[in-house]
Design a protein around this nucleic acid. Structure first.
Length: 961
RNA sequence: GGGAGAGUGGUGGAAUGGUAUACACGGCGGACUUAAAAUCCGCUGCCUUUACGGGCUUGUGGGUUCGAGUCCCACCUCUCCCACCA
């Protein structure tokens, strides 16, 4: 009998598939399915285990769709531009063109070894001139639309190394390589105006079938915030008349006791002629030199300096000082803020340190959002007045908490204010009544807390207003507390930490925070705000925006800086002319090809090595014909990957980037699979380009990826990330060479756990899937070695039915699971079927037509997971053509339905016995049969059955006393 | 600091509110073998019982329910993302 030998079987079929072009599709997009992998950067290390997981998921899905008669486009290519190849070139002198070619050849070979069903006729390489020609063409489209622009920007520059440094490469103001101080140099950079699309990028997310997590990350990244811009009059300054600030809390304007200006904005004042003190100048210039990383260290103490300038608070009309501090960012909003230390932690921290005034303007309003007291927003609320008191023990650092056993509440001491009593009198009265304590040492109001909640006993919303007090007891002397009060609640002495978990009402928890002096940054009722005092935040914001400022929307997202002073990228197709400025390279002159180089060192003047290639650099201006120079920056590699999914449609078209009709028919991508690490880079950029190209009329759709799935990471068996330096890397090709084969490896990676979950590699796990494939192969060989065509005995027909039932149930399970990416459970189901087949073959002789039919069904549903072995077995079982284009089997609903079901008998919810009965049996029939059950009766003996719960085909639960 | 997700045997994991621990790894036992490997078969959460059976168990503590791994509340732990964005 033949043995399962993936080493000979797999290459054989890979060759046949290639020769028959089994996985190639033409551009007829009828009944199409575009299944796309995030294409890889072809590193020198080759494919890793994580790639295999990614590609196995998409390949299984693509094959499954193909077996459903879909025309599946499943292409692969190379994101080939990038730093590693260039650094390798600097080190070894090997041109990136050469090392990249070696790497892509290696990747392709490895992928073919794994048997993925890619249409290799559509392979693309972003570093090939026939590809980046069109990347450049798209750049020019954006340039024409005004979406690509140049702006002068400060860049880190190391004089010693003669190079530009990335922000991350500057440590404490020094170059990470040589340790010498770096300076900032103004350099012209290219940007894409992605911010123009901020709202569209945000809104478009709603309709995408993407993981919520990724959508949320994009939302946060875009960071839309709606607020107001206010102008503060700047006094006695010749260089500037006003300071604009952006705030989302204009309702706290009354508490704005100073303004903070970013060093970047202050620097523009210096340039405009501000005669600042030396100390101020020094602070500004030093701040600008600091690495972003240091400035953004939230752990460090706030720094800043008073400018001596004053501005006017438009609400209070008072003069407030203007300071410069680096905790305000130059690049966000207006680069200046109004500081409200009472209601912003950062401002509070600064004010504390620099002794700035702190004015409270918001009294907290807490809205109950949990439990039975949850405020009902659509119902009216009634005002109520009461007090809250935080009462401290006379000798210990403990406080009174009231535990309400009936309601399940934990509160501080609280009570309503009676007619004629002041709040303070109420506190004294309540303390005596509810706790009995007689002597009070300290009684101090710490604020007022408002709360919106639902009053369960009264069945109505309440808007409570409570002066809040801190009380310290003198001693433990106390009166008797009435039985009535004792019934309601119990007094507990708790530490502050214990109180935190104990208090169920958010307003009471707020009282503790208030006592501790915590900054309140929530919603509330205004005070110390002139005419606006007494109003609620939300309404006050509207009115104050109209009166003092104007509405403004800000985004965290910045324009996309795409120029790189690097060689190994797509050259930016621009020519700089002294007369005409930045001029687009005419489309018929594309591509602007990368010249061949011998020396890959950067030019030394902040430009890429391209600046050294004189005959490439010097060109005539396309407009005036005069002498001009090419742009020497190349594009960020993310530009190349922002449209590759379009190029797969017409990969070899040399007159256009794509054929609009073809692309409109195939796109958007139906299923996109890749890692979550691209959440806010590639996935955002690709969406932006698609929207821009829609606006330029080149596309008819504006979202490139309809459905997205992220595969989880695979960690080493020690639970750490696989890395060369840790020596815990598993090489997929090694496993194949060891004889496991591609099928067993792919199957294991699908079986290892839910596709989107991070899992640790189990070195023995692959033995399990290899064993499973062995068993499948072996049982089919045994079957084939039997005489075929014999008639079965009557006694065997029920076994044949059992076989058909097992197979059909598995077909259903695998089908349903695959629809929801349940690869691991689908594999488990097929393992169960094979285990069942091994049991059945003991009494049901192999070799019959029935066996052959069932084996063929098994082979068909296993095919997407293990393409080689199934193709071989399909052929051995006389299947027609390739199993991979055979029709996915349907299950027979009659065989899947159970005739007999097991009914569980429970007593008070505990399983006591089980009985078998025909499916659909009535409650009476089930109970009648159950009445004879010995174990059940033992548990029912001497008990009264109060009621029974009957769930058809599932259980009977006897509730007894 | 903010946000998101996750905690189930020795391990990876399974389970529309209805028999928790499917499937697999590992372990133990048996068959085959001169022997080993491979293969095939069986057992494998914990405690208790000769056995039938009984008790406990899904991070912890509460709650809802006839019934909770699953729903609600609080807490603990871990992972990921963002992080002075006003």
């Amino acid at each position: 009998m033949k043995k399962y030998d993936p080493k000979t079987l797999e290459p054989k079929w890979q060759q046949i598939w290639a020769e028959t072009k089994l996985y190639e599709v033409d551009n007829d997009a009828q009944n199409k399915e575009y299944v796309l992998d995030m294409f890889p950067y072809p590193s020198g290390a080759g494919l890793h285990i994580g790639h295999v997981r990614n590609f196995s998921i998409s390949d299984t899905y693509a094959r499954y769709q193909r077996q459903h008669g879909k025309r599946v486009l499943h292409p692969m290519g190379w994101d080939a531009f990038g730093l590693p190849a260039e650094n390798y070139a600097i080190k070894t002198g090997t041109a990136p063109q050469i090392s990249t070619k070696q790497n892509t050849d290696n990747f392709r070979r490895q992928m073919q070894t794994l048997g993925f069903s890619y249409d290799w006729s559509r392979e693309i390489d972003t570093s090939a001139p026939e590809y980046y020609r069109w990347t450049q063409w798209i750049f020019l489209q954006l340039f024409e639309m005004g979406l690509a622009y140049q702006a002068e920007n400060l860049q880190w520059w190391c004089e010693t190394d003669q190079t530009v440094l990335a922000n991350e490469q500057v440590e404490a103001g020094k170059c990470w390589r040589c340790g010498n101080p770096v300076t900032k140099k103004p350099l012209k950079q290219w940007f894409f105006k992605i911010t123009d699309y901020a709202d569209q990028l945000l809104d478009g997310l709603d309709d995408l079938d993407w993981p919520e997590k990724i959508k949320l990350m994009q939302r946060n990244w875009i960071g839309r915030s709606v607020g107001a811009e206010i102008s503060f009059e700047l006094l006695d300054a010749s260089f500037e008349k006003k300071i604009d600030v952006f705030t989302t809390r204009i309702d706290t304007l009354g508490g704005a006791t100073f303004l903070v200006v970013s060093p970047e904005l202050a620097n523009t004042w210096l340039e405009a002629g501000w005669q600042a003190d030396d100390e101020v100048k020094k602070y500004i210039l030093d701040s600008l030199k600091k690495a972003e990383i240091d400035r953004q260290d939230t752990a460090k103490e706030k720094t800043g300096v008073n400018t001596g300038l004053n501005a006017v608070n438009p609400l209070t009309k008072t003069n407030i000082p203007v300071v410069v501090a680096d905790y305000v960012l130059g690049g966000y909003g207006t680069g200046a803020i109004m500081a409200v230390p009472a209601h912003d932690e950062r401002d509070y921290e600064f004010a504390q340190k620099f002794k700035m005034p702190i004015v409270e303007v918001i009294e907290p309003v807490l809205t109950q959002t949990t439990g039975s007291a949850t405020f009902r927003h659509n119902e009216p609320a009634q005002d109520s007045h009461g007090v809250i008191a935080l009462i401290k023990h006379w000798s210990q650092d403990k406080y009174i908490g009231l535990s309400w056993p009936d309601a399940g509440w934990g509160t501080l001491l609280t009570g309503g204010i009676d007619e004629g009593l002041t709040a303070e009198q109420t506190v004294r009265k309540e303390i005596l009544e509810e706790t009995g304590f007689r002597n009070i040492k300290v009684l101090r109001q710490i604020g007022t807390i408002h709360s919106k909640y639902y009053h369960e006993p009264k069945k109505a919303n309440r808007f409570g207003h409570a002066p809040t007090f801190y009380v310290e007891l003198e001693n433990g002397e106390r009166d008797q507390v009435s039985e009535d009060e004792k019934q309601k609640h119990e007094i507990k002495w708790l530490t502050k930490a214990e109180l935190e978990g104990f208090l169920t009402a958010t307003s009471h928890a707020q009282a503790v925070k208030m006592f501790e002096g915590q900054v309140y940054n929530g919603e509330g009722i205004l005070k110390n705000s002139g005419d606006f005092s007494g109003q609620e935040s939300a309404l006050a914001r509207e009115k104050m925006t109209t009166k003092f400022g104007r509405e403004r929307v800000n985004y965290k997202m910045r324009d996309w800086l795409i120029s790189r002073q690097r060689y190994w990228g797509a050259p930016i197709p621009i020519i700089h002319c002294p007369k005409d400025g930045a001029v687009a390279v005419p489309a018929d002159q594309l591509p602007v090809e990368l010249p061949e180089l011998k020396d890959f060192q950067p030019s030394g003047d902040g430009r890429s090595p391209l600046a050294k290639v004189k005959d490439w650099l010097e060109v005539g201006c396309p407009k005036c014909g005069g002498p001009a120079q090419r742009e020497t920056d190349t594009m960020d590699t993310f530009a190349c990957s922002s449209w590759y999914f379009l190029r797969f449609i017409n990969p070899h078209d040399d007159v256009q980037a794509w054929n609009k009709n073809d692309v409109d028919a195939w796109l958007p991508v139906d299923t996109y699979i890749g890692g979550a690490e691209h959440a806010v880079l590639h996935l955002l950029y690709a969406r932006f380009w698609t929207k821009a190209l829609r606006d330029s009329g080149h596309l008819n759709f504006d979202e490139p990826f309809k459905s997205l799935r992220n595969q989880g990471l695979i960690l080493a068996s020690d639970g750490r990330k696989m890395s060369k330096s840790l020596g815990n890397v598993i090489d997929p090709l090694d496993l194949i060479n060891e004889g496991y084969g591609a099928d067993a490896l792919r199957l294991y990676e699908l079986f290892i756990g839910p596709y989107d979950q991070t899992v640790a590699w189990n070195p023995n796990g692959i033995d399990g899937t290899k064993r499973f494939l062995n068993r499948v192969y072996a049982i089919v060989q045994e079957h084939l070695s039997q005489d075929s065509g014999f008639r079965i005995q009557d006694s065997e027909s029920s076994l044949e039915t059992a076989l058909a039932i097992a197979t059909n149930k598995t077909i259903k399970k695998v089908t349903v699971d695959l629809e929801s990416y349940g690869f691991n459970t689908a594999v488990a189901a097929m393992m169960e079927l094979v285990n069942e087949m091994y049991k059945l073959k003991v009494d049901l002789p192999l070799g019959s037509d029935a066996w052959r039919d069932n084996f063929k069904l098994l082979v068909q549903i296993l095919a997407p997971f293990a393409p080689h072995i199934t193709e071989e077995l399909w052929q051995q079982l006389d299947g027609e053509g390739s199993v991979h284009i055979s029709t996915w089997p349907a299950w027979d609903e009659n065989l899947v339905k159970d005739d007999l079901v097991t009914i569980v008998l429970q007593v008070n919810g505990k399983v006591r016995s089980q009985i078998e009965i025909e499916a659909g049996a009535s409650e009476d029939a089930v109970k009648k049969l159950a009445a004879a059950d010995e174990n059940l009766n033992r548990h029912l003996q001497g008990k009264t059955v109060i009621k029974t719960i009957f769930v058809p085909d599932k259980l009977v639960n006897y509730v007894v006393k």
